[in-house]
Amino acid sequence: MKFLNRVKSRTPESVELEFVLAGLGNRTYALIIDYLIWSSILIVILIVWAFLVTQIAWLRSEPIRLWITAIQLLILFGVYIGYFICFETLWRGQTPGKRYVKIRVIREDGRNVGIQQSILRSLLRPIDDILCLGFLFILFSAQEKRLGDWVAGTILIQEGQTVTKQKIEISPAATDVANRIIETGKIAALTPDQFATIRKYLYRYPALAPTARNSVSDRLANQLLERIELADTLPTIDAHLMIEAIYLAYQQQFRE
């Protein structure tokens, strides 16, 4: 999508990488999820604590009570600060929210974040939250960095969607047609971009409105047949089947 900001970074090995920045929308989404989880953890701890203290008389006896309070404060502080540090370090730049939204914190040179970066980001988080400073910084900086990101030298990027998770269902009848297309058509005339469009079509076909399916299939099939110079030679078959066959044919052609 051309409306998402991109950033180029160079690894220590001088490999140039291009990333799509996470963007305010994804970051807000991830933050909402994280804050929900994080506050529920804190609430559960407090409730369990209150329950223990009211139910067990021994915990209320004098010297122990002080210890218990100290431990409680320590745990709360640990969860408060530790949530983001632990997850970002252990999950290589992701928290549950970020993982769900498919974004990740990385260093500016493309490497994974370490515990140092996570700590810096976490310590500056309260300042970024006050008066929504972080929001403004992300909004107006080219690399979408909040204060924590500036100090830690990190950026947030989108993770590529993994193709394997998306299943493409292809009808068995397409294999025969594909073989005929390979024999007679110029499958090599298709560019990778055009193949990507075919794949998008196949992914999204089930979600298309039933009334729109035929016109989309017809249009795309005609364009493709024109491309591979088979517009008139093949007997008329279902447009969707034709596109499936061209998909298979392209795959077979370039796998060998």
């Binding site: 999508m1 409306f3 963007g23």
Partner: peptide, 14 residues
Amino acid sequence: DPVGTLSIGNVVTT
């Protein structure tokens, strides 16, 4: 980007 549609967050970002 194999699907070519916008995710929830990307709608807002866009």
